[in-house]
Design a protein around this nucleic acid. Sequence first.
RNA 1: GGACCCGUAGCUCAGGGGUAGAGCGUUCGGCUUACAUCCGAAAGGUCAGAGGUUCGAAACCUCUCGGGUCCACCA
Length: 728
Amino acid sequence: MDKVYKHQDIEKEWYSLWEKEGYFTPGNDKTKKQFSIILPPPNANADLHLGHAMYVIEDIMIRYHRMKGDATLWLPGADHAGFETQFVFEKILQKKGKSRFDFDSETLYKMIWDFVQANRGNMENQLKRLGFSLDWTRQVFTLDAKIIKIVQQTFKKLYDDGLLYRSKRLVNYCTRCGTGFSDLEVKYVERVDPLYYMKYGPFTIATSRPETKFRDTALAVNPKDKRYKETIGKTYEIMGLLGPIKMKVIPDPLVDPKFGTGIMKVTPAHDPHDFELGQKFDLPATPIIDFSGKMDFSWFLSQKNINPKYKARAEKYHGKKVLAVRTMMVEDLKEDDLLLKTDENYTHRIGTCYKCGTVIEPLPLPQWYIKIRPLADAAVKAILSKKIKFAPKKQEKTALQWLNNFHDWNISRQIVWGIRIPAWKCLKCGSDEWIVTSGEKPDKCPNCRGTDLEQDKDTFDTWFSSGQWPFATLQVNHEGDYEYFYPTSVMETGYDILPWWVCRMIMLGIYAVGEIPFQTVCLHGLVRDKNGRKMSKSKGNVINPLVMADLYGADALRFALIYGTAFGNDVPMSEDKIRGMRNFSNKLWNIGRFIKMNFESFQNEKKSIDLKSKIPEKNLTDQNDQKLLRDLDAVIKNTTKSIEEYRFDKGAESLYEFIWHNLADKYIESVKERLKNYDEKALNVLTYVFLTSLKLLHPFMPFITEEINKQLSGKNSPLIISTWPKLL
RNA sequence: GGACCCGUAGCUCAGGGGUAGAGCGUUCGGCUUACAUCCGAAAGGUCAGAGGUUCGAAACCUCUCGGGUCCACCA
C-alpha cells in the first residue's frame, strides 16, 4: 500500500467501476423487499453547492439497504427550475445589453433550452464526484416529453373534477419579473414607511399607500365601533386630489378600531382584503397601477371637461412609477390642505419578490387556481394516520401547520421557461369557456366549431410539476417501476422546502394516483458557515463542495456533513472540520497499512494466516480480544440503529470513536508485542474487526473503505455489494 | 398576534433523571519503524436565570431573559 492515500485518483476509479458493473441498478428480483428514494432534482444548468452535498444522507440509506440485500433504487433527475432559470438567463441577457422583451416567447424558450443544454452534465458529474450511488440508467428531466404529458394530464383531471378554476383575483405580481406568484413566493420584510393621515370628507383616514386612493370605492368601519355606528350605509362626498367623489360606508368586522382612526379606505384592485370586501359589497376592482408598476390615469384624462388643475395633476402622475407618484401626491395633499399629519416611524411588513426584492403589487389578473382544501385535507389525513412519518418528528407539526393553512394555489406563471398550460380559447366565438386538454391542441371549438384557437400563454409553476415528481419519474421509467417502487420509501430533503415541495408532493401524489408518494419524510438542516450564518457569495463564506472533495477527499467532506450535528439541525461547516475528517481517512489508511505490513511479515515467517474476514474463534482467551469483539458488536448495533432511526450522526460518531480510539489507539497498541511473536489469533481478530468496521463505514465513506478492503482482502468482491454485518 | 427551535469547555456542537462529552483550538511531553494528516498528558463548564416535581435535575414542568426561524388580510 502507498504510504499516502491518494484520494483523487482512487475515488474516480471506484466510481467508474461501480457504475460500469451496474451496482446502482436494482435487479429484477420482485421477491426482494424494495427500498427507493427519488433524488430531489437539482437545477439542470447550475453547479452543485454545499447544500446538495447533504444528499450524502440519502446515499447512506441507499448503500445500507443495498448491503442489506433490498432491491434498492435511487433515482436521479434534473429540474428545469422554471422561474429560477429564466431569472439567471435574463441576467445573462442583461449583460449583453438585451432583455427578454427583445424576443418573442418561442425564441426565448429556445434560447433558454440551448443555454440549459450547454450546461447539462456539470451537475451529474459533480454528483458522481461525491460518490452518490444513483441509478443513472433511470435519469429523468422535468421537461422530458413523457413528464410533461403526465403533468398536463393531472391538470386536466383537476379541471374535470372541478378542482381547478380560473379567476381574476388579485395575484401577487412582481412588476420587475413580470409574473404572478403563489403566496409562498412572497417574502415579507419589515419596513419603516410614513403613515399618512388624510382628510377624507368628514373623516380622517390613515394609509401608507395614498397613491391607490384614486381607486377607492368605499369606506369601511368596524360595526361595533360606536364612533362610526351612525355612518354605516350612508354615502359621503369626499374631496380628493382629482376632485370630489362619492363613497359609501360599509361594515367590516376585520377593521381594527385601534388602528389609525378606525376607518379604512377600500381599494379592491390593490389590496387582497379590500378585494374580498369588494366582492361582498359588489364594488368595482379597477386598477390604477399597471403590470409594469406605473400609474395609469388614462381613464381620468379621457373624460371631457376636466378641471385644468386636476388635469395637470393627472398628467403629471400618469405613466410614473408608484413611489414617484406617492412623493408628488404628498406635496399636492399639503397644497390642498388634505394632509393632516404624517407618522414617519410606522413599522409594517411588506410583501416583496423573493427573487429580486421588488415590492409585490397585488393586481387583478386571471390565473389558474387549484382548490386546495380537498387536496390538503387528504394530506393531513395521511399524516395524522401515520401513513406518512416524519424525521425528525418535530417537522410533522410544521407540515400540518402548513397544510392546514394553505389557500388556493395559483399555478399560472407569466414566464416562458416551463410547461405550457394546456388550455385554449376560441377566437371566433369569443366564448368565455376554456377548452382544457391533456396536452394536445383541440381540433375545433365545441361551441362554434371554429378552428382559430389560442392557447393560454402562461406556464405552470415549477412546483406544480415537481409536486408530481415521485410518481411521474417512476411511471415514465422502466416497465414495472411504478408498480414496484411506488410509494417510495423515503423523501429526504432540506426542511426549507417542506411547504414548497414536500407538502405539494403529498397533496398531488394522493390526488393524482390515489396513493401517498413516500412513507417517510426525512428533513435535514441547512448547511451554514462555522458561525451559523447562511453561506452567500456576498458574505464570502461559501465553501465549494467540489473544491473540498479535491482537497480532502469526497469521503472527508461526506463525513464532515454527518458528524457532530444532530440530524435535522442546521449544520455548521468549516474547512477545519473537513480537514479533521480527512485525518480520519488517513487514520483508516494507516490501520490498513499496519495490518498489511504484519500480514507480510507473517508470510515471510511462513506462518499460515487467512487474512480474509475469517470469523474469530468463539473461545478467545485474551481479554483485549474479547473486549474488542464486544465493542464491535455494540458498534454494529449502534450504526444499524442510527441509520434505521435517521440519526446518522450517531452512527458516524460511534464508528469514529470505535475505530480511532478503541481499535487504533488501544487495541493495536496493546497487540504489537503479540504480533511481533506472530500470534495468529491477534492478527485474525484485528483484521476481522477492521474489515467489519469498513463495511459499517462504507455507506458514510464509500471510497476509502472500498480501497482498503481491496488492498487487504485481495480479489474479494466490493463492499458496495457486500453483506451488512450482523452481530456475532 | 400565533407557532417552532436554540442558549452545555475559548469556538462549533453532541448528550439528556444518578461521578459533565466530542471535534477544532490552547498548554506540556514525545519523530515509540501504521500514521506528526500522529501519540501521551493537562488546563478549561455552579450545562442562560428563577421557581417547581424528585431521594437525586444540565436533563421533566412553569415562568423570565437572550438568540434564531416560520406563519397571519393590520389598512
